[in-house]
């Protein structure tokens, strides 16, 4: 059964899956223990995406260089379509991401969110915070030397 999906919600989970650590995603997915029947619309293929920057950080765009991305698309038995565009060259990662994308549009969404997406989000957040905490410890605290004139 398909449910109505908002674009921002779908964007959020697809973005999370794209950046997920493959080992972490794979572990959570297999623990979820659900392998739906599906057909490939587009089997996984690795390719490149040209990443753009902006002159001066805010001006006109320019091409910076490429990154590797793997994409695929599949359809579940009930016709729900799942897409994946994930960073790197892992086909298994893309396959899991597309299955999660498809199942998130079904009644399985609630369980899947708890079993896979939320833990992934927590791991990612913890990793970011750990780096930010180290960066914060290297922030310079200036102090002014007392001068002898007066």
């Amino acid at each position: 059964m398909k449910t109505e999906i908002s674009a921002p919600a779908r964007k959020a989970w697809m973005s999370l899956l794209a950046q997920a650590d493959e080992a972490e995603l794979s572990r959570l997915w297999h623990a979820f223990n659900h392998s739906p029947d599906f057909d490939w619309l587009r089997p996984p293929e690795a390719g490149g995406v040209m990443v753009r920057g902006r002159m001066g950080g805010s001006g006109a765009p320019f091409n910076l260089g490429e990154m590797t991305v793997t994409r695929c698309a599949l359809t579940l038995a009930d016709g729900t379509v799942g897409h994946a565009y994930v960073q790197g060259r892992s086909k298994p990662k893309a396959e899991i991401a597309a299955k999660v994308d498809a199942l998130m549009q079904t009644e399985a969404a609630q369980n899947l969110r708890q079993a896979v997406l939320e833990p992934l989000q927590q791991v990612q957040q913890a990793r970011k915070e750990a780096r930010a905490a180290r960066a914060a410890a290297t922030k310079v605290e200036f102090f002014t030397m007392v001068r002898g004139e007066d």
């Binding site: 390719g47 040209m50 753009r52 902006r54 805010s58 490429e66 590797t68 994409r71």
Partner: peptide, 23 residues
Amino acid sequence: YRTTLPRFGYSEAVNTGDMACDR
């Protein structure tokens, strides 16, 4: 190797103002 990869497209320009700065 890069020349063997199909080009999926171009990204939006990255926003370096949103960078999680290590430095």
